[in-house]
């Protein structure tokens, strides 16, 4: 057993190392993931541990994503790294028209076990093309699963599951999560089934639902709200698609209140889907305004001062939670 703390970055590394160790048919591709160790240092020395199966690609997101589709259709399990989530637009055709479709459109003859790992998110002053959270762009792609874990343990468990899923999985890693750590190194790292939400904090007054870095922010807000006498139940949905509506529904039926927190756009966001689903399922249980905290419709500015006006923070989450306590 390893000593010390487990970071989110290390958890992903461990998951990659584990699946590649276990299975010769697992291949990892992406830009600068060999000697350089990956733009965010995730792949580290994997190329030396698994020679030939960690492949540094040219800067051709569309091309290498398509190659990964071809590889996965012919018997491999492939993980690709898109260096910044914003660059996924360059690979959109291969993800949307090919990877996500092949199982259905070819009548079940072929599978596409492909994990698209990608660092997302802002708060770092990278500007409009290196800061987006684009999970919501992919919510309406049949055949594609989406995972966005917020803790190191979940990152490990969900990534192992994603690799062994036989469908393409978009695996979103927030840049600010890489350095977060579990308090103690767990005795055993376990695979976590996709599609299962996690109650990150039990509470009675308001259900706050979030994913990825939003869970960390919401947890901080919940701790502060506790001092003000508001007991938040925080649900980390972990998998955005398939979405565990049953877990959210159970919590809302208990609290009667709902706030969704995400870093991506509020308009057409994950929160829009969750709120609609809750209104359809349990409107009579609601006992306060249902609110969404997210990004307004504006590109993310490079100025870190301006960026803070745009992206969610604990203050805005607290404000929304308090408003959700009543109909006013």
């Amino acid at each position: 057993m390893q000593k010390g703390k487990l970071s989110y970055r290390k958890a992903i590394y461990n998951a990659l190392d584990h699946v590649m160790e276990r299975d010769e048919k697992v291949v990892f591709m992406g830009e600068d993931i060999t000697e350089y160790g990956g733009a965010f240092g995730v792949s580290s020395d994997l190329c030396r541990k698994h020679p030939g199966r960690v492949i540094a690609t040219p800067i051709s997101e569309g091309g290498f994503t398509g190659a990964a589709v071809g590889l996965s259709m012919t018997g491999y399990r492939v993980i690709i790294e898109i260096m910044f989530m914003d660059f996924i637009t360059l690979a959109a055709d291969q993800i949307i028209n090919h990877a996500a479709n092949v199982h259905y459109m070819y009548g079940g003859q072929v599978k596409c076990p492909l994990v698209i790992r990608t660092p997302a998110g802002g708060y770092r002053g990278y500007g409009p093309s290196h800061s987006k959270s684009m999970e919501n762009f992919f919510m309406s792609v049949p055949g594609l699963k989406i995972v966005a874990p917020s803790t190191a343990l979940d990152a490990y468990g969900c990534l192992v599951s994603a690799v062994y899923d036989n469908n393409p999985v978009l695996f979103v890693e927030h840049k600010l999560l890489y350095n977060i750590e579990e308090d103690a190194y767990p005795k055993r790292l376990e695979a976590i089934p996709l599609g299962k939400a996690r109650v990150a904090r039990a509470g009675a007054d308001v259900t706050v639902v979030s994913h990825s870095y939003g869970v960390q922010l919401s947890m901080e807000a919940a701790k502060e709200l506790e001092k003000e006498g508001v007991d938040v139940e925080l649900i980390d949905i972990r998998t955005l698609k398939p979405l565990d509506m049953a877990a959210i529904e159970a919590s809302v039926k208990k609290t009667g209140r709902l706030v969704y927190v995400e870093e991506g756009d509020t308009f057409g966001g994950i929160g829009s889907e969750v709120v609609s689903g809750i209104v359809e399922r349990c409107l009579p249980y609601l006992d306060g305004r249902v609110l969404r905290v997210g990004k307004p419709e504006v590109p993310i500015p490079a100025s870190m001062v301006a960026e803070r006006f745009i992206l969610p923070d604990t203050g805005r989450i607290k404000e929304a939670v308090k408003k959700s306590l009543s109909w006013k």
Binding site: G63, A67, G70, L71, M73, T74, Q94, N97
Partner: peptide, 13 residues
Amino acid sequence: GGLPIATGAGLSI
């Protein structure tokens, strides 16, 4: 759309 997929099949081989 098929060009990178065939290329991936080549990589597989």
